[in-house]
Amino acid sequence: MVARIVDLRSDTVTKPTETMRTAMAFAEVDDDVLGFDPTAFRLEAEMAKKFGKEAALFVPSGTMSNLICVLAHCDVRGSEVILGDNCHIYIYENGGIATIGGVHPRVVKNNNDGTMDIDLIEAAIRDPKGELFYPSTKLICLENTHANSGGRCLSAEYTDRVGEVAKKHGLKLHIDGARIFNASVALGVPVDRLVQAADSVSVCLSKGIGAPVGSVIIGSENFIAKARVLRKALGGGMRQIGILCAAALVGLHENVGKLESDHKNARTLADGLSEIRGLKVDASSVETNMIFIGIEGSWTTAEKIRKYLEERNILLMKDSSSRLRVVLHHQISASDVQYALSCFQQALQCENGN
């Protein structure tokens, strides 16, 4: 009998469903670098239509998708991108925009809800007359949902306002939409409306919709043509990618509808955790599938609790010495949530000596 494992490390840990495996096994494929993979065509066309843009491109990873988008918009070395000080591109993507692309990051403070103040964004835009001294601002980046803010959602109205600032100053707007489907479901707003103001969007296929590999870049036909060249240069040109795209199509059709259940399970878990002595959880801020759990007091640490839970097959990530992160996904059931809650309760009682 296989031991029960409740994997809350990330929504990237999902395993391909039987439907995905069947679709992968029988996918119609050809050489995508040569431009002939029919299943890749299907996925890219469907994503472009769903997001209200002209074209799309499959890439191996979310980090590569964001890097390509930044480089395509900031096509002169020494250009500058404005982005949040707590966003994924700035914190977790190996500084690729600077080290590989020669693009300078100009950071603006992220608020607790993942937004940046509009006036601070506008103030960060360089004066073109100062080009002798300053980088040239080319791009603004947003992240929706905003992971380090706990999966908070950016509204269409907020994104529109940022888009207006970008257009006013002749800039482009990119959205790191790794979990944009979560935002769409949580807000009750179609994804095309959430990215209406954006010139490009990157969407992760291996997070909320549960595909095993890949991301998609979405934008205008001209932009995607530039992105395709950059994908090849960065080593992301692959051959029979229809095998991967077939799984993504299944996830797109079958798993987006499950995100509301993920969000419900996250709220149930957050409500339960907030009642456990020694844990600090702001349940009211849990909008999608992510929860950050603060550890109160000096009598235990996040690592001790993580190890205790791991021994009971509850897997999660330590965010710092005093904070844990859990992420729900479609392979976590309501029963798993209750089991996790009971293990958290036992862990805190054990550490507290009760």
Score class of each variant (00 low, 15 high):
residue 324 L to Q: 00
residue 319 D to N: 15
residue 212 P to A: 01
residue 263 H to A: 14
residue 240 Q to Y: 12
residue 251 G to H: 02
residue 250 V to K: 01
residue 244 L to D: 14
residue 226 K to P: 12
residue 243 I to T: 14
residue 239 R to Q: 15
residue 279 L to F: 15
residue 317 M to P: 02
residue 260 E to A: 15
residue 245 C to S: 11
residue 322 S to C: 11
residue 308 Y to N: 05
residue 258 K to A: 05
residue 239 R to A: 14
residue 253 H to P: 00
residue 312 R to F: 06
residue 231 R to K: 15
residue 233 A to D: 11
residue 202 S to T: 15
residue 266 A to Q: 08
residue 231 R to V: 04
residue 324 L to E: 00
residue 245 C to V: 06
residue 268 T to G: 03
residue 280 K to V: 02
residue 223 F to N: 02
residue 317 M to V: 12
residue 298 S to T: 12
residue 302 A to Q: 04
residue 303 E to P: 10
residue 312 R to V: 02
residue 245 C to Y: 06
residue 293 I to D: 01
residue 300 T to E: 02
residue 324 L to C: 01
residue 283 A to F: 07
residue 296 E to L: 14
residue 306 R to I: 06
residue 260 E to K: 15
residue 218 I to Y: 04
residue 237 G to M: 08
residue 237 G to T: 05
residue 272 G to A: 03
residue 238 M to C: 10
residue 290 M to E: 13
residue 298 S to A: 11
residue 313 N to L: 06
residue 305 I to W: 06
residue 283 A to N: 09
residue 249 L to K: 07
residue 295 I to R: 00
residue 212 P to S: 03
residue 302 A to G: 05
residue 277 R to D: 15
residue 204 C to W: 10
residue 209 I to F: 00
residue 299 W to T: 11
residue 292 F to D: 01
residue 207 K to F: 12
residue 221 E to Y: 14
residue 269 L to W: 02
residue 321 S to C: 07
residue 233 A to L: 14
residue 225 A to K: 15
residue 258 K to N: 09
residue 274 S to Q: 07
residue 297 G to Y: 04
residue 218 I to F: 04
residue 310 E to D: 13
residue 320 S to Q: 01
residue 285 S to E: 13
residue 316 L to P: 03
residue 319 D to W: 01
residue 245 C to K: 05
residue 234 L to R: 08
residue 236 G to N: 06
residue 285 S to F: 09
residue 248 A to G: 10
residue 230 L to M: 09
residue 304 K to P: 01
residue 297 G to N: 01
residue 271 D to Y: 07
residue 294 G to E: 11
residue 207 K to A: 09
residue 207 K to G: 10
residue 303 E to T: 09
residue 278 G to E: 03
residue 262 D to V: 08
residue 227 A to D: 10
residue 226 K to M: 11
residue 310 E to Q: 13
residue 310 E to R: 13
residue 256 V to C: 03
residue 322 S to W: 14
residue 236 G to V: 08
residue 280 K to L: 04
residue 313 N to Y: 13
residue 268 T to K: 15
residue 323 R to I: 01
residue 321 S to E: 12
residue 309 L to H: 03
residue 306 R to A: 13
residue 296 E to S: 14
residue 223 F to E: 00
residue 252 L to T: 00
residue 267 R to F: 04
residue 240 Q to R: 13
residue 244 L to M: 15
residue 232 K to C: 09
residue 321 S to M: 09
residue 297 G to M: 05
residue 235 G to K: 10
residue 276 I to P: 09
residue 212 P to Q: 02
residue 215 S to P: 05
residue 226 K to D: 14
residue 218 I to K: 01
residue 236 G to Y: 05
residue 307 K to S: 12
residue 277 R to F: 13
residue 269 L to C: 03
residue 305 I to D: 03
residue 247 A to E: 13
residue 240 Q to W: 10
residue 306 R to F: 07
residue 285 S to N: 13
residue 217 I to L: 12
residue 284 S to T: 12
residue 260 E to C: 03
residue 216 V to G: 00
residue 297 G to L: 05
residue 233 A to I: 11
residue 264 K to R: 14
residue 206 S to L: 02
residue 272 G to C: 07
